[in-house]
Computed example of a mutant assay.
Amino acid sequence: MIVRTRGEVEGSSREVFAENGNWVSKRFLREEDNMGFSLNETIIYANTETLIWYKNHLEAVYCVDGEGEIETTEDGTVYPIKPGTMYALNKNDRHYLRAYNKDLRLLCVFNPPLVGDEVHDEDGSY
Rank of each mutant, 00 (worst) to 15 (best):
R14E: 01
E15Q: 15
E15F: 02
V16E: 09
F17N: 07
A18E: 06
A18G: 09
A18Y: 04
E19R: 14
E19P: 00
N20S: 02
G21E: 06
W23M: 07
W23Y: 15
V24R: 09
V24D: 07
V24T: 11
S25G: 04
S25A: 15
S25I: 00
K26M: 15
K26D: 14
R27I: 03
R27F: 01
R27L: 02
R30C: 15
E31M: 11
E31W: 08
E31L: 13
E32M: 06
E32H: 08
D33Y: 05
D33V: 15
D33I: 15
N34E: 12
M35H: 06
M35F: 15
M35L: 15
G36T: 03
G36R: 01
G36F: 08
F37N: 01
F37D: 01
F37I: 14
S38M: 05
L39T: 05
L39H: 02
L39V: 10
N40V: 14
E41N: 13
T42D: 01
I43D: 05
I44R: 04
I44S: 04
I44Y: 09
I44H: 08
Y45L: 07
Y45T: 06
Y45C: 03
Y45R: 10
A46F: 05
A46P: 07
T48P: 00
T48Q: 10
T50L: 06
T50H: 09
L51M: 07
L51D: 12
L51H: 13
I52P: 07
I52R: 11
I52A: 08
I52W: 09
Y54Q: 11
Y54C: 05
K55N: 09
K55M: 07
N56I: 13
N56L: 14
N56S: 15
H57V: 03
H57F: 08
H57T: 03
H57G: 05
H57N: 07
L58W: 14
L58I: 12
A60D: 09
A60F: 12
V61E: 10
V61A: 03
V61K: 06
V61L: 04
V61I: 13
Y62H: 11
Y62C: 01
Y62Q: 04
C63N: 05
V64M: 13
V64T: 15
D65E: 09
D65K: 04
D65P: 00
D65R: 03
G66T: 10
G66A: 06
E67K: 05
G68K: 14
E69H: 01
T72D: 08
T73V: 12
E74C: 00
E74V: 02
E74P: 00
E74G: 02
E74S: 13
E74Y: 13
D75N: 08
D75S: 04
D75T: 00
D75V: 01
G76R: 07
G76W: 09
T77Y: 06
T77F: 02
T77P: 02
V78E: 14
V78W: 07
Y79M: 01
Y79I: 01
Y79V: 02
Y79E: 01
P80L: 01
P80R: 00
I81P: 11
K82P: 06
K82H: 10
K82V: 02
P83Q: 12
G84W: 13
G84A: 10
G84L: 11
T85H: 13
T85K: 14
T85A: 02
T85C: 07
M86E: 11
Y87Q: 05
Y87M: 03
A88G: 05
L89F: 15
L89W: 14
L89N: 14
L89K: 11
N92W: 12
D93T: 08
R94E: 04
R94L: 00
